[in-house]
Nucleic acid binder design. Structure first.
Lengths: 144, 144
DNA sequence: CAATACTCTACTAAGTTTATAGAGTTTATA
DNA sequence: TATAAACTCTATAAACTTAGTAGAGTATTG
Protein backbone atom coordinates (compact mmCIF):
# COMPACT_ATOMS: atom_id res chain seq x y z
CA UNK A 1 0.00 0.00 0.00
CA UNK A 2 1.01 3.58 -0.65
CA UNK A 3 1.91 5.59 2.43
CA UNK A 4 -0.24 8.59 3.23
CA UNK A 5 2.75 10.73 2.32
CA UNK A 6 2.85 9.40 -1.22
CA UNK A 7 -0.89 9.63 -1.57
CA UNK A 8 -0.99 13.19 -0.26
CA UNK A 9 1.90 14.08 -2.55
CA UNK A 10 0.03 12.82 -5.59
CA UNK A 11 -3.09 14.75 -4.65
CA UNK A 12 -1.08 17.91 -4.05
CA UNK A 13 0.72 17.54 -7.37
CA UNK A 14 -2.51 17.05 -9.29
CA UNK A 15 -3.89 20.08 -7.48
CA UNK A 16 -0.91 22.17 -8.53
CA UNK A 17 -0.87 20.82 -12.07
CA UNK A 18 -4.49 21.85 -12.52
CA UNK A 19 -3.63 25.38 -11.40
CA UNK A 20 -0.25 25.68 -13.03
CA UNK A 21 -1.13 29.00 -14.67
CA UNK A 22 -2.30 30.58 -11.40
CA UNK A 23 1.09 31.37 -9.87
CA UNK A 24 2.09 30.26 -6.35
CA UNK A 25 -0.56 28.35 -4.40
CA UNK A 26 -0.73 28.51 -0.60
CA UNK A 27 0.09 25.38 1.39
CA UNK A 28 -2.92 26.17 3.52
CA UNK A 29 -5.28 26.17 0.56
CA UNK A 30 -3.97 22.86 -0.75
CA UNK A 31 -4.25 21.38 2.74
CA UNK A 32 -7.80 22.56 3.11
CA UNK A 33 -9.10 21.60 -0.29
CA UNK A 34 -7.39 18.22 -0.41
CA UNK A 35 -8.03 17.34 3.23
CA UNK A 36 -4.40 16.99 4.20
CA UNK A 37 -3.03 17.98 7.66
CA UNK A 38 -1.19 21.22 6.91
CA UNK A 39 1.98 20.57 8.91
CA UNK A 40 2.31 17.16 7.34
CA UNK A 41 1.82 18.63 3.89
CA UNK A 42 4.55 21.19 4.52
CA UNK A 43 7.11 18.41 4.86
CA UNK A 44 5.82 16.69 1.76
CA UNK A 45 6.00 19.79 -0.41
CA UNK A 46 9.50 20.48 0.88
CA UNK A 47 10.57 17.01 -0.26
CA UNK A 48 9.06 17.63 -3.68
CA UNK A 49 10.90 20.92 -3.85
CA UNK A 50 14.22 19.30 -2.95
CA UNK A 51 13.52 16.76 -5.66
CA UNK A 52 13.12 19.54 -8.23
CA UNK A 53 9.46 19.02 -9.01
CA UNK A 54 8.18 22.10 -7.24
CA UNK A 55 9.49 25.53 -6.38
CA UNK A 56 8.27 27.95 -3.73
CA UNK A 57 8.08 31.62 -3.05
CA UNK A 58 8.16 33.05 0.47
CA UNK A 59 6.34 36.02 1.92
CA UNK A 60 3.09 37.61 0.88
CA UNK A 61 1.83 36.29 -2.42
CA UNK A 62 4.03 33.24 -1.95
CA UNK A 63 3.24 29.55 -2.20
CA UNK A 64 4.22 26.48 -4.17
CA UNK A 65 4.13 25.89 -7.91
CA UNK A 66 5.07 23.19 -10.37
CA UNK A 67 8.33 23.68 -12.23
CA UNK A 68 8.29 20.44 -14.18
CA UNK A 69 5.94 19.83 -17.05
CA UNK A 70 2.90 17.77 -15.95
CA UNK A 71 3.81 15.31 -18.68
CA UNK A 72 7.18 14.72 -17.10
CA UNK A 73 6.03 13.97 -13.56
CA UNK A 74 4.88 10.39 -13.16
CA UNK A 75 3.56 8.17 -10.38
CA UNK A 76 6.65 5.96 -10.33
CA UNK A 77 8.95 8.85 -9.44
CA UNK A 78 6.62 10.17 -6.74
CA UNK A 79 6.25 6.75 -5.18
CA UNK A 80 10.00 6.18 -5.17
CA UNK A 81 10.59 9.55 -3.55
CA UNK A 82 8.29 8.88 -0.61
CA UNK A 83 8.05 5.12 -0.26
CA UNK A 84 11.31 3.92 -1.75
CA UNK A 85 11.36 0.93 -4.04
CA UNK A 86 8.26 0.00 -6.02
CA UNK A 87 9.05 -3.70 -6.37
CA UNK A 88 8.03 -6.39 -3.88
CA UNK A 89 11.56 -7.76 -3.53
CA UNK A 90 14.81 -5.83 -3.08
CA UNK A 91 16.54 -8.09 -5.60
CA UNK A 92 14.35 -6.90 -8.48
CA UNK A 93 14.64 -3.18 -7.87
CA UNK A 94 16.94 -0.94 -9.81
CA UNK A 95 17.72 2.01 -7.58
CA UNK A 96 17.29 0.23 -4.27
CA UNK A 97 18.86 -3.10 -5.19
CA UNK A 98 19.83 -5.45 -2.39
CA UNK A 99 20.52 -9.14 -2.41
CA UNK A 100 17.95 -11.35 -0.67
CA UNK A 101 19.79 -12.86 2.29
CA UNK A 102 18.21 -16.25 1.96
CA UNK A 103 18.74 -16.46 -1.78
CA UNK A 104 21.12 -19.13 -2.99
CA UNK A 105 21.41 -18.18 -6.64
CA UNK A 106 19.79 -15.01 -7.84
CA UNK A 107 20.27 -15.77 -11.52
CA UNK A 108 18.17 -18.91 -11.40
CA UNK A 109 15.71 -17.93 -8.67
CA UNK A 110 12.17 -18.66 -9.84
CA UNK A 111 10.63 -16.45 -7.18
CA UNK A 112 12.75 -13.54 -8.34
CA UNK A 113 11.71 -14.22 -11.91
CA UNK A 114 8.02 -13.95 -11.04
CA UNK A 115 8.43 -10.75 -9.07
CA UNK A 116 10.63 -9.26 -11.75
CA UNK A 117 7.75 -9.59 -14.20
CA UNK A 118 5.47 -7.85 -11.71
CA UNK A 119 7.94 -5.06 -11.17
CA UNK A 120 8.43 -4.45 -14.88
CA UNK A 121 4.72 -4.35 -15.60
CA UNK A 122 4.11 -2.06 -12.64
CA UNK A 123 6.87 0.39 -13.47
CA UNK A 124 5.75 0.57 -17.10
CA UNK A 125 2.23 1.54 -16.10
CA UNK A 126 3.31 3.98 -13.40
CA UNK A 127 5.82 5.69 -15.70
CA UNK A 128 3.06 6.20 -18.24
CA UNK A 129 0.80 7.65 -15.56
CA UNK A 130 1.91 11.26 -15.63
CA UNK A 131 0.08 14.14 -13.99
CA UNK A 132 -1.07 15.20 -17.42
CA UNK A 133 -2.41 11.72 -18.20
CA UNK A 134 -4.22 11.44 -14.87
CA UNK A 135 -5.94 14.79 -15.35
CA UNK A 136 -6.80 13.92 -18.93
CA UNK A 137 -8.21 10.56 -17.91
CA UNK A 138 -10.28 12.18 -15.20
CA UNK A 139 -11.87 14.53 -17.73
CA UNK A 140 -12.62 11.57 -20.00
CA UNK A 141 -14.24 9.61 -17.17
CA UNK A 142 -16.42 12.58 -16.27
CA UNK A 143 -17.81 12.72 -19.80
CA UNK A 144 -18.92 9.11 -19.82
CA UNK B 1 7.78 -4.76 -0.24
CA UNK B 2 6.84 -8.23 0.85
CA UNK B 3 7.01 -8.87 4.57
CA UNK B 4 9.51 -11.44 5.80
CA UNK B 5 6.53 -13.61 6.68
CA UNK B 6 5.29 -13.72 3.10
CA UNK B 7 8.79 -14.26 1.78
CA UNK B 8 9.51 -17.07 4.23
CA UNK B 9 6.13 -18.61 3.43
CA UNK B 10 6.93 -18.70 -0.27
CA UNK B 11 10.32 -20.29 0.35
CA UNK B 12 8.79 -22.87 2.68
CA UNK B 13 6.07 -23.69 0.16
CA UNK B 14 8.55 -24.14 -2.68
CA UNK B 15 10.61 -26.31 -0.36
CA UNK B 16 7.60 -28.50 0.41
CA UNK B 17 6.41 -28.60 -3.19
CA UNK B 18 9.79 -29.90 -4.28
CA UNK B 19 9.55 -32.69 -1.71
CA UNK B 20 5.87 -33.43 -1.99
CA UNK B 21 6.46 -37.15 -2.46
CA UNK B 22 8.66 -37.42 0.63
CA UNK B 23 5.95 -37.39 3.31
CA UNK B 24 5.97 -34.98 6.27
CA UNK B 25 8.93 -32.61 6.45
CA UNK B 26 10.25 -31.32 9.77
CA UNK B 27 9.84 -27.64 10.59
CA UNK B 28 13.42 -27.70 11.83
CA UNK B 29 14.77 -28.95 8.53
CA UNK B 30 12.88 -26.32 6.53
CA UNK B 31 14.09 -23.66 8.94
CA UNK B 32 17.67 -24.77 8.64
CA UNK B 33 17.82 -25.25 4.90
CA UNK B 34 15.89 -22.10 4.04
CA UNK B 35 17.54 -19.93 6.71
CA UNK B 36 14.35 -19.04 8.52
CA UNK B 37 14.14 -18.58 12.33
CA UNK B 38 12.40 -21.75 13.46
CA UNK B 39 9.93 -20.24 15.92
CA UNK B 40 8.91 -17.68 13.36
CA UNK B 41 8.45 -20.36 10.76
CA UNK B 42 6.22 -22.36 13.09
CA UNK B 43 3.69 -19.53 13.14
CA UNK B 44 3.86 -19.17 9.37
CA UNK B 45 3.26 -22.85 8.69
CA UNK B 46 0.39 -22.82 11.12
CA UNK B 47 -1.23 -20.01 9.15
CA UNK B 48 -0.76 -21.94 5.93
CA UNK B 49 -2.33 -24.95 7.58
CA UNK B 50 -5.34 -22.94 8.75
CA UNK B 51 -5.66 -21.67 5.21
CA UNK B 52 -5.86 -25.22 3.89
CA UNK B 53 -2.63 -25.24 1.91
CA UNK B 54 -0.66 -27.47 4.24
CA UNK B 55 -1.40 -30.23 6.70
CA UNK B 56 0.71 -31.51 9.55
CA UNK B 57 1.35 -34.66 11.47
CA UNK B 58 2.42 -34.62 15.09
CA UNK B 59 4.79 -36.90 16.94
CA UNK B 60 7.67 -38.94 15.64
CA UNK B 61 7.80 -39.06 11.89
CA UNK B 62 5.63 -35.95 11.81
CA UNK B 63 6.06 -32.68 9.98
CA UNK B 64 4.33 -30.55 7.38
CA UNK B 65 3.26 -31.43 3.87
CA UNK B 66 1.44 -29.82 0.98
CA UNK B 67 -2.18 -30.82 0.52
CA UNK B 68 -2.95 -28.58 -2.44
CA UNK B 69 -1.61 -29.23 -5.89
CA UNK B 70 1.47 -27.07 -6.61
CA UNK B 71 -0.37 -25.79 -9.67
CA UNK B 72 -3.15 -24.47 -7.49
CA UNK B 73 -1.06 -22.48 -5.04
CA UNK B 74 -0.09 -19.09 -6.39
CA UNK B 75 1.84 -16.05 -5.19
CA UNK B 76 -1.22 -13.82 -5.07
CA UNK B 77 -2.96 -16.03 -2.50
CA UNK B 78 0.14 -16.34 -0.32
CA UNK B 79 0.73 -12.60 -0.37
CA UNK B 80 -2.87 -11.87 0.53
CA UNK B 81 -2.75 -14.34 3.41
CA UNK B 82 0.27 -12.72 5.05
CA UNK B 83 0.35 -9.13 3.85
CA UNK B 84 -3.27 -8.41 3.04
CA UNK B 85 -4.19 -6.50 -0.09
CA UNK B 86 -1.87 -6.57 -3.07
CA UNK B 87 -2.94 -3.23 -4.57
CA UNK B 88 -1.40 0.14 -3.74
CA UNK B 89 -4.75 1.76 -2.91
CA UNK B 90 -7.61 0.34 -0.83
CA UNK B 91 -10.13 1.58 -3.40
CA UNK B 92 -8.82 -0.76 -6.11
CA UNK B 93 -8.70 -3.95 -4.08
CA UNK B 94 -11.32 -6.59 -4.25
CA UNK B 95 -11.26 -8.44 -0.92
CA UNK B 96 -9.99 -5.54 1.16
CA UNK B 97 -11.95 -2.71 -0.45
CA UNK B 98 -12.19 0.58 1.37
CA UNK B 99 -13.06 4.02 0.15
CA UNK B 100 -10.21 6.57 0.08
CA UNK B 101 -11.18 9.21 2.64
CA UNK B 102 -9.96 12.12 0.59
CA UNK B 103 -11.59 10.93 -2.61
CA UNK B 104 -14.34 13.10 -3.98
CA UNK B 105 -15.65 10.83 -6.74
CA UNK B 106 -14.28 7.35 -7.05
CA UNK B 107 -15.85 6.66 -10.43
CA UNK B 108 -14.00 9.49 -12.12
CA UNK B 109 -10.78 9.46 -10.08
CA UNK B 110 -7.79 9.48 -12.43
CA UNK B 111 -5.42 8.34 -9.71
CA UNK B 112 -7.61 5.34 -8.99
CA UNK B 113 -7.72 4.53 -12.69
CA UNK B 114 -3.93 4.39 -12.90
CA UNK B 115 -3.55 2.20 -9.83
CA UNK B 116 -6.36 -0.05 -10.97
CA UNK B 117 -4.35 -0.85 -14.09
CA UNK B 118 -1.34 -1.65 -11.90
CA UNK B 119 -3.36 -3.88 -9.63
CA UNK B 120 -4.89 -5.82 -12.50
CA UNK B 121 -1.56 -6.41 -14.20
CA UNK B 122 0.03 -7.43 -10.89
CA UNK B 123 -2.70 -9.86 -9.88
CA UNK B 124 -2.69 -11.46 -13.32
CA UNK B 125 1.02 -12.19 -13.10
CA UNK B 126 0.93 -13.35 -9.49
CA UNK B 127 -2.02 -15.66 -10.11
CA UNK B 128 -0.13 -17.25 -12.97
CA UNK B 129 2.92 -17.69 -10.75
CA UNK B 130 2.07 -20.98 -9.09
CA UNK B 131 4.51 -23.11 -7.11
CA UNK B 132 4.66 -25.47 -10.06
CA UNK B 133 5.47 -22.63 -12.46
CA UNK B 134 8.15 -21.20 -10.19
CA UNK B 135 9.88 -24.57 -9.85
CA UNK B 136 9.59 -25.18 -13.57
CA UNK B 137 11.01 -21.75 -14.38
CA UNK B 138 13.88 -22.35 -11.99
CA UNK B 139 14.81 -25.55 -13.79
CA UNK B 140 14.67 -23.75 -17.13
CA UNK B 141 16.91 -20.95 -15.87
CA UNK B 142 19.45 -23.46 -14.59
CA UNK B 143 19.75 -25.02 -18.04
CA UNK B 144 20.57 -21.76 -19.77
C1' DC C 1 8.62 47.29 10.13
C1' DA C 2 4.84 44.28 10.21
C1' DA C 3 2.38 40.71 8.26
C1' DT C 4 2.71 36.76 5.45
C1' DA C 5 4.29 32.38 4.30
C1' DC C 6 7.69 29.02 3.66
C1' DT C 7 11.63 26.25 6.45
C1' DC C 8 13.78 23.63 9.93
C1' DT C 9 14.44 20.83 14.14
C1' DA C 10 12.66 18.09 17.53
C1' DC C 11 9.44 15.28 19.45
C1' DT C 12 5.77 11.73 20.15
C1' DA C 13 1.88 8.40 19.96
C1' DA C 14 0.39 4.46 17.77
C1' DG C 15 0.89 0.61 15.05
C1' DT C 16 3.45 -3.07 12.67
C1' DT C 17 7.07 -6.28 12.06
C1' DT C 18 10.08 -9.68 13.51
C1' DA C 19 11.03 -12.16 16.36
C1' DT C 20 11.75 -15.17 21.31
C1' DA C 21 10.33 -17.99 25.45
C1' DG C 22 8.16 -21.52 27.40
C1' DA C 23 4.43 -24.42 28.52
C1' DG C 24 1.04 -27.62 26.39
C1' DT C 25 -0.68 -31.36 23.39
C1' DT C 26 -0.48 -35.25 20.34
C1' DT C 27 1.58 -39.39 18.37
C1' DA C 28 4.77 -43.26 17.28
C1' DT C 29 7.15 -46.88 18.95
C1' DA C 30 10.22 -49.50 21.98
C1' DT D 1 2.74 -47.43 28.89
C1' DA D 2 6.60 -44.50 29.21
C1' DT D 3 9.22 -41.50 26.55
C1' DA D 4 10.96 -38.82 23.09
C1' DA D 5 9.60 -36.46 19.04
C1' DA D 6 7.23 -32.82 16.99
C1' DC D 7 3.59 -29.75 16.28
C1' DT D 8 0.53 -25.96 18.92
C1' DC D 9 -0.63 -22.11 21.69
C1' DT D 10 -0.12 -17.89 24.52
C1' DA D 11 2.45 -14.18 26.00
C1' DT D 12 5.95 -10.87 25.55
C1' DA D 13 9.19 -7.54 23.63
C1' DA D 14 12.60 -4.93 20.92
C1' DA D 15 13.08 -2.35 16.80
C1' DC D 16 11.23 0.11 13.27
C1' DT D 17 7.94 2.85 10.62
C1' DT D 18 4.15 5.90 10.03
C1' DA D 19 1.55 9.85 10.73
C1' DG D 20 1.30 13.74 12.86
C1' DT D 21 2.28 18.01 16.20
C1' DA D 22 4.80 22.02 18.21
C1' DG D 23 7.26 25.84 17.88
C1' DA D 24 10.94 28.67 16.67
C1' DG D 25 13.39 30.50 12.53
C1' DT D 26 13.96 32.82 7.95
C1' DA D 27 12.77 35.34 3.87
C1' DT D 28 9.78 38.53 1.27
C1' DT D 29 6.47 41.99 0.17
C1' DG D 30 4.36 46.27 0.55
Amino acid sequence: MLSKKAKYAIHALIHLARRKEDGPILISSIAEEENIPQKFLEAILLDLKKDGVLASKKGKGGGYYLIKDPEEVNMADVMRLFDGAIAFLPCVTHKYYERCEECKDEETCGIRDAFLQVRNATVDILKASTLAKVIEREAALKKE
